[in-house]
């Protein structure tokens, strides 16, 4: 693990929907520049965990510190916190009534009140980086799934977040489009972005992660470096989970 300062500290996070417990006493540290990949069976609470971090889901107890500041206080200005925590969703969720460029510029111009010219220049630079500059005037419906997802990543990046959350961003994509999105994420990881990624792409997880966090039944079962985790998981639950995967791959 990198010896840098902690960017995000999650302490004893507890989340339930009244009947079932979704997350139970989850604690996790994320350091600057670290790439943490959350894996685990469906319904284990991975996505909910991400959604709690940027306040889309209320939590019942626990604390989350961003840059040492508790963001689970009553007076949390989520609008400010969310500028520091970028999020990309599984279903891209671009705004269908706006062009690609307008989708990207909405945050910088309306939230951060940045100069439109300057923001446009940056948007174009970012679009070029993900290979979509020529599509800047297209509407979302004219893009493929992979292209939409790359635009969604740019839309989050332009806010200059301190950490990016990726919630199964390739799960809704056709297989041949998965790669183009993962490549963008790999490039981000290389350039030192702090990221939390929920994914079912095990090869990708292995390649991109500094740390693997295995969640099952709403709790963190195992944490480790990718090599250790994938080669010799310490817990039985993790090895069973990974076994299902290799079985699937052999087929």
């Amino acid at each position: 693990m990198k010896e840098t300062e902690k960017l995000l500290e999650i302490r004893h996070l507890h989340k339930d929907y009244g009947e079932g417990t979704i997350l139970e006493d989850v604690s996790l540290d994320i350091h600057k520049g670290e790439v943490v990949v959350l894996i685990g069976p469906s319904g284990c609470g991975k996505s909910t965990f991400l959604r709690c971090i940027n306040g889309l889901e209320p939590i019942q107890s626990g604390e989350i510190f961003l840059d040492g500041e508790n963001i689970i206080a009553n007076k949390t200005k989520w609008s400010e916190v969310r500028q520091k925590i970028g999020m990309v969703f599984q279903s891209y969720d671009l705004f269908p009534h706006m062009t690609v460029l307008d989708n990207i510029l909405l945050g910088p111009t309306k939230v951060q009140r940045r100069d439109k010219k300057e923001a446009t220049a940056e948007a174009e630079k970012l679009l070029e980086r993900v290979g979509l500059l020529d599509r800047k005037d297209a509407y979302p419906r004219q893009l493929s799934g992979g292209q939409k997802q790359r635009v969604a990543i740019v839309r989050a990046l332009i806010m200059k977040p301190e950490i990016m959350l990726f919630d199964e961003v390739t799960a809704a994509l056709d297989p041949e489009m998965v790669r183009e999105v993962l490549d963008v994420m790999l490039e981000l990881a290389k350039s030192g972005s702090t990221m939390m990624i929920v994914t079912h792409e095990m090869q990708f997880a292995r390649a991109v992660a500094d740390k693997i966090v295995f969640l099952d039944g709403g709790e963190i079962v195992e944490t480790g470096a990718p090599e250790d985790f994938f080669n010799s998981p310490k817990t039985e639950r993790a090895s069973r989970f990974l076994h299902t995967f290799t079985f699937d791959q052999v087929k």
Binding site: Q83, F89, R155
Partner: peptide
């Protein structure tokens, strides 16, 4: 509904 969350996640407030 996720359009709403998507807007929130880039820092827009409710009325925006």
């Amino acid at each position: 509904k996720i359009q709403f969350e998507s807007g929130l996640s880039i820092g827009l407030n409710h009325s925006q």
